[in-house]
Design a protein around this nucleic acid. Structure first.
Length: 499
RNA sequence: GGCCCCUUCGUCUAAUCGGUGAGGACACCAGCCUUUCAAGCUGGCAACAGGGGUUCAAAUCCCCUAGGGGUCACCA
């Protein structure tokens, strides 16, 4: 039998190698993304390797679409991998389903070594057995019935019946998990039953495939969610049964929904894609995720990815589950929206602008420059890329939606029409049409008319944008351009019969 | 139910070997700034789950209780 893949990579055993091993049965969700991030941070901090492996042994639920979507999310977050799909590597295959016979051979080796056995029990038999145990107040565990079948019976039934392969767990002693975050966690072996390592369709279960691949890929640290802690003793016993060195573990706390339950669809956006689509920046999401269950130990919250890599350590990961609070993410997003380089924001906001305003795919230099100015103006007061697009409407479209309350407040006053006419007249004169000069002109106008700016600006803003709030009015006027400004002032007067 | 993990403001968290007015951030509230709204700045509200020990001294160490989560699948 060809088993040389077992021994590959021994030479770099001392090097840090971690893996993120998603199952392509859904999009990359927040919890998975954080696990991926912690793996990535650990690898980068230690100058080790980050491996992406696809655990697709659930043949029914796995799909190519999800695989692609997960890969896209990882890239979007900036979590690159040194080995895995698309980039290859010397420890492949990185997609479990591509090498199923490997697991089978190993399982059969365990059977020959007397460490595993064929089990012919049907689903019905197991169900009734469990039911009985439940009634008797016993923990539901497989009885081990098929373990001692005679070789003759076993071989005979293999021909006609479907079967699984079960691993023989020790029934005495204890198994200790060495966990970097939690210390030593001890399990009594008598609580385990002989669990399935090869399903009846010949595909390995997670507990089996994962151990083999971790070993073959020379993984040094298994960093994953806490839900896997209880399964770790099984995996350790498999590893020992196969003669593998057991890796170090780090079980990171779960991320919970605000109601303390497991994060699910009904709690709103849970996948990385959804956050991207609502206009969250990867910088913000990465920063936020890093803070969920980890802190650098000083009063530092806003960190770019390089700082986080620098400061990250598993020892500082907290033990308790974190509740996901979108408000803080939104706040961080707002921060990055107004502090990141403008061109970066424009690049990210452009798809949202295009979608909202049906702009053509190719945008000319001039148009680009204009959009850049718009974004620079509105980005200070919004929190997502989508809101950038929403806040830009009156620069892009001439049809305005006038705010109802604003109309009551600013238009239904005597003399508004006259003020707007004066504003129009005053602005005609301004040349060049830039914010500073516009401000001076309107200040002069307020002197001349002997009314405060708070009588002039609000109706002007409403007439030009349809809104009562937004960026600095003088910037808006300048960017809108003289022609459009005068047109809109006129239109508002006519539309609302202002005088 | 068995087993495992966890428990500091509403939320994320900090607090070197036990000695702190228990710190920061989000959210919330108020003030300042201001042509609006944000942003920014200043201030405020707000926590050691409960009970026993150990100790001169406990958020920190030990035990118990309670609560939350995970796991016990031919899902990962």
């Amino acid at each position: 039998m060809n088993l040389d893949y077992i021994n590959r990579g021994v030479n770099d055993m001392e090097k840090t190698r971690v893996r993120f091993a998603p199952s392509p049965t859904g999009e990359l969700h927040i919890g998975g993304a954080r696990t991926a991030l912690f793996n990535w941070l650990f690898a980068r901090h230690n100058g080790g390797k980050m491996i992406l492996r696809i655990d697709d042994t659930d043949r029914q639920r796995s799909s190519q679409e999800y695989l692609l979507s997960i890969i896209e999310s990882m890239k979007w977050l900036g979590l690159n991998w040194d080995e895995g799909p698309e980039v290859g590597g010397d420890y492949g295959p990185y997609i479990q389903s591509e090498y199923l016979h490997k697991y089978r051979e190993l399982a059969e080796q365990l059977v020959r070594d007397g460490k595993a056995y064929y089990c012919f029990c049907t689903a019905e038999q197991l169900a009734t057995e469990k039911e009985r145990q439940r009634k008797e107040g016993q923990p539901p565990r497989y009885s081990g019935r098929c373990r001692f079948l005679s070789e003759e019976e076993r071989e005979r039934r293999k021909l006609s019946e479907s079967y699984v392969i079960r691993f023989i767990m020790p029934k005495e002693g204890e198994t200790v998990v060495e966990d970097i975050i939690r210390g030593q966690v001890t399990f009594e072996n008598n609580i385990f039953d002989d669990f399935i390592i090869i399903k009846s369709d010949g595909v390995p279960t997670y507990n089996f495939a994962s151990v083999i691949d971790d070993h073959n890929m020379a993984i040094t640290h298994v960093i994953r969610a806490e839900e896997h802690l209880s399964n770790t003793p099984r995996q350790i016993n498999i590893a020992q049964g196969l003669g593998y060195q057991v890796p170090l573990y780090a079980h990171v706390p779960m991320i919970l929904a605000p109601d303390h339950s497991k994060l699910s669809k009904r709690h709103g956006a849970t996948s990385v894609q959804e956050y991207r689509d609502m206009g969250i920046l990867p910088e913000a999401l990465v920063n936020y995720l890093a803070l969920l269950g980890w802190s650098p130990g000083e009063d530092k919250e806003i960190m770019d990815i390089h700082e986080i890599v620098d400061l990250f350590s598993l020892e500082k990961v907290s033990k308790n589950p974190a509740i996901y609070d979108i408000k803080k993410l939104i706040w961080l997003n707002g921060h990055y929206l107004r502090t990141l380089e403008l061109n970066k924001i424009v690049e990210r906001a452009l798809p949202f602008m295009k979608r909202k305003y049906n702009l053509c795919a190719e945008i000319g230099t001039e148009k680009y420059k204009e959009i850049e100015k718009i974004i620079d103006l509105v980005r200070d007061r919004v929190k997502t890329l989508q809101e950038i697009a929403d806040a830009s409407s009156y620069f892009i479209e001439d049809d305005l939606q006038y705010d109802e309350k604003g109309i009551e407040k600013h238009f239904r006053k005597d003399g508004v029409g006259k003020i707007l006419s004066e504003v129009s007249l005053a602005l005609q004169r301004v040349e060049p049409f830039e914010a500073g000069r516009i401000r001076d002109e309107l200040h002069d106008l307020s002197q001349k008319l002997n009314v405060s700016l708070s009588r002039i600006n609000p109706p002007t803003r409403l007439a030009l944008t349809g809104r009562t709030m937004g960026p600095e009015l003088f910037d808006i006027i300048s960017l809108l351009g003289k022609e459009r400004v005068i047109k809109r002032l006129k239109k508002a007067k006519e539309l609302f019969e202002l005088n």
